[in-house]
Design a protein around this nucleic acid. Structure first.
Lengths: 138, 138
DNA sequence: AGTTTTATTGATAATGATTATCAATATCAA
DNA sequence: TTGATATTGATAATCATTATCAATAAAACT
């Protein structure tokens, strides 16, 4: 059922490490922390689950989590980018393989290991382009 | 002759700051440090030029050096995207024509008129990849 | 020039984030 | 269950960066 947990446990196994209750707490806290993760945020979230958990444990476990899946868990939702109309706010979600590929090349070029990305294109949608043109035509 | 220096001094002027000998030392050290520079590296290089220079001065000046780089980009309106290391915070600015082209196709496909975009790639830089691997090695 | 004002310096203290130490405890395999 | 080992939380230590501050240097005035 809990795929995240299984993945983590499998990873720990390969390192002769144990899946423990505090580690599970950190994992849950980590997954529950949407958006940008500071270790502090995860620590706070973990304390809400288990007030007795130690800060060092959170650091240690976060480090372990980098192993199988890295810090971000954006992978949980299917990845897509955004195309936003700045006039009416229309939002289009899209996925473009060519862009993904080009991004991979950038990661490689600079010696980075890819974790994820965020892209937002801003423009005027067709309707708004028309509307603007009309209003300019007076 | 030294364009970097001039650019830096011009930037300092706009902030009512002074071009001093220690600051020039740090600038030289900064420019001389090939590749991946930690503040520590720059400090070492600066000390080779002026053994009496203080560590705090290096940190302060490095912070100032961020200014003109940003300023230059903003002034020239040169577009770039960001590649960020989520572990150490290293930020690489890059421009990739293939990505720009692919984005244009997306705009067109959805009938949008392009205005701009924001893209941030997240990953682990080479040093951090290594560091993480070491820390996981048992 | 000299005087005043303000920015800058280096040393050091303080901070914030992360890591190491360690005795007590939990986990796993037999 | 036992025994071996991994893990824990508390705390100390470390690392990188900042803040403080008295002494100094530079610019801006006489």
């Amino acid at each position: 059922m809990n795929e995240e947990r299984d993945l983590f446990e499998r990873y720990l196994r390969t390192k002769d490490l144990k899946m423990t209750s505090p580690r599970e707490t950190v994992l849950q806290a980590f997954l529950a922390t949407e958006g940008h993760l500071s270790a502090e945020d995860v620590f706070d979230a973990a304390r809400r689950i288990d007030p007795g958990i130690g800060q060092a444990t959170v650091f240690r476990t976060l480090k372990l989590l980098e192993g199988p899946r890295r810090y971000e868990h954006a992978y949980r939702h299917r990845h897509h980018d955004h195309l936003l109309c700045i006039r009416c706010g229309k939002l289009v979600e899209f996925f473009d393989p060519a862009i993904e590929k080009a991004q991979d090349r950038v990661f490689e070029k600079y010696g980075f290991k890819a974790i994820g990305h965020m892209m937002e294109l801003k423009g005027l949608c067709a309707e708004c382009t028309e509307a603007v043109r009309d209003s300019l035509a007076k």
